[in-house]
Nucleic acid binder design. Structure first.
Lengths: 348, 348
DNA sequence: TCCCGAAGTTCGATTTAAATG
DNA sequence: GCATTTAAATCGAACTTCGGG
């Protein structure tokens, strides 16, 4: 490996000068262009690349950000991850990716590994979070800028980026209501997810505002499962049960896109056509929603933007630490957006 | 930050001894248990964590592996990535994730960044590769163990893990044939993808073996596009065109799951029911295939295993380098597997 | 004082060589 | 020679200090 000393030797200057020139340090002002040129040429010729270990050892910087995902197999993650990656790239940071598999021990081990690598910030993608919020304690003592996506903590030391679930719930119901639907089946999320309650609140408030009465016999609950994919099967099963009860409904509002897919499958199997005989709306707008048959009307979370936003927050945090300013946690709640596709239709 | 010297002071021994004890180095044999205990207790008490920068500077090891993806938004990536992550975790390596967005400049910049971080190996997920294979040159000079998933290079310095596309093509056609289908529409992959040709070869060979004649007017070609998602839209459009031609077919063999989804959409819009009036088979078995309506019969690539396999190869490579053995590149071709679901049916 | 460059110290851990009894 | 411990060198870059013109 070629070191700075090799460049020094090759160029005929000391390693100090080489360092100053190649980093364009403040003192480089004083160094004549001829010297600079010689040094740069030597570095070029030798293919010199500074050793990041040595550099980091002194500067105490890693230019690395930890990304923890609770379950990668959730299609929700993909776009968020792309938003994170893309924004980090622009800021010249590199992400270390870890997938906790919703296991506490794995969370702890990974956190330790990341901290040992001196990550400069941590982004947690709490997409399907079934851990006791005790992990909060572990996170807080890390003392690096931390942002959670998809779950808001009460604490003031961890930033968060979440979608406005209440508005989202309202948008979804409003859409069905405006299409003339009155008998609406509802699939609620597992209570363990922080999204479930506010989303449900938005639905209830909207119903009240519209003067719509929600039939409790049309309200279904997703089971508490650690597996994000489970919501597909559960959505299917709940809908099958509902159909069997013969309680009529003209539309179904699912907790998320996966449970909506499950519902569509169940309706289809029962010979109920979507959207002709029953409208279905989802939540999230994961990638498959656009190419489902029928394509899914849903409430979009701006996932890529949320990833980018989290990076923005922690990069600000990093800069603040470098300048010894201190910033308090930022909590962003982004607006969801209705995406009308083929799975919903006006009631004749 | 607490350093090894702090532990030395606290325990009353020199930093040398502390290092030997905490790393359980060979010389630790000679160190009495009492000393060890004292040192360990001191380290524990102070919450000592060795500085990885310093450690890496000496050992020249980063315990980090670079992962380059050509396009993350491809649903194909998710499971492969999980296989990679999980296997790296077991080997105590951490992945740095980069997404090249199918851009050459981004590939080069990322490669440089990764090499600067002294990654110990590189795994390239060439899922939808539209770059000139010139990047091969860049890769070879990196001189660290490298494995490509999804694309085989002729070189002997880069390992590869690919699915046996020829067998896959055969399996797909065989399945349709065995269900009694004879008029089969075919969507071929873009020529720029290395998967396309062998998959097509498998299909042709199988057709010949069965005595099945492939109608050239039922053979469609996916356009050359850098966007993996494009195969959905292209699949839809090609199928629409085909339907318009009124050339009858009872089954459709798509290049991948996404184009199969597009085909199903088109068939559906034309009032042709899948699988009742037309069977459709895909390739890959991406996550959405299982929860599509109808669920998709497809040829599964064992993606998680392929990711794990690539990690296995490069970890072996790392160990070989440490022991100054040299290993040549490994080329694995894994067998695909037919997954029968709802989108195919026996011809009445 | 300004300009240019070099010598030497530091970051924190590992390792070699050597010093004790 | 053996068991036990340590001073000092090393990894590679960056920064502080200093001296000569």
């Amino acid at each position: 490996m070629v070191t700075i000393r090799d460049v020094a030797k090759q160029s005929g200057f000391s390693s100090t000068t080489v360092s100053i020139v190649l980093n364009n340090a403040p003192l480089a002002r004083y160094i004549p262009a001829a010297t600079k040129k010689k040094i740069e040429r030597a570095a070029q010729k030798l293919g010199y690349r500074p050793n990041q270990f040595a550099r980091s050892l002194r500067s105490k910087r890693s230019h690395t950000v930890g990304v923890m995902i609770f379950d990668m197999t959730d299609p929700y993650c993909t776009l968020v991850l792309r938003g994170i990656e893309n924004t980090l790239y622009q800021a010249s940071f590199l992400p270390i990716l870890t997938d906790v598999h919703n296991e506490r021990s794995r969370f702890e081990r990974y956190l330790e590994m990341l901290l040992d690598r001196r990550i400069e910030a941590l982004i947690v993608l709490a997409n399907w979070l079934f851990l006791d919020i005790n992990l909060l304690g572990d996170l807080e003592k890390s003392s690096i800028p931390t942002a959670m996506i998809g779950c808001e903590l009460e604490t003031d030391s961890i930033s968060s980026v979440i979608v406005d679930n209440e508005i989202g719930g309202r948008i979804a119901l409003e859409h069905l209501y405006s299409l003339g639907h009155r008998k609406i089946a509802l699939i609620r999320g597992p209570k363990a997810l922080t999204d479930s309650l506010p989303r449900w609140r938005g639905i209830r408030k909207c119903a009240r505002a519209c003067g719509l009465e929600l039939d409790p016999r049309l309200i279904l609950d997703l089971p508490e499962s650690r597996d994000p994919m489970s919501s597909f099967e559960a959505g299917q099963k709940l809908t099958e049960d509902l159909i069997r009860q013969k309680r009529p409904f003209t539309a179904l509002l699912a907790f998320d896109d996966l449970s909506a897919f499950g519902a569509i499958r169940a309706l289809n199997k029962a010979g109920i056509r979507v959207p002709e005989q029953c409208s279905v709306i989802g939540f999230d707008d994961v990638a498959p929603s656009a190419f489902y048959t029928p394509s899914l009307t849903t409430v979009r979370q701006p996932m890529e933007a949320m990833g980018a936003s989290a990076v923005g927050i922690v990069v600000d945090g990093i800069n603040a630490m470098l300048e010894k300013r201190d910033v308090s946690a930022t909590h962003r709640k982004v607006a969801p957006e209705l995406v009308v596709r083929e799975s919903t239709r006006r009631l004749p």
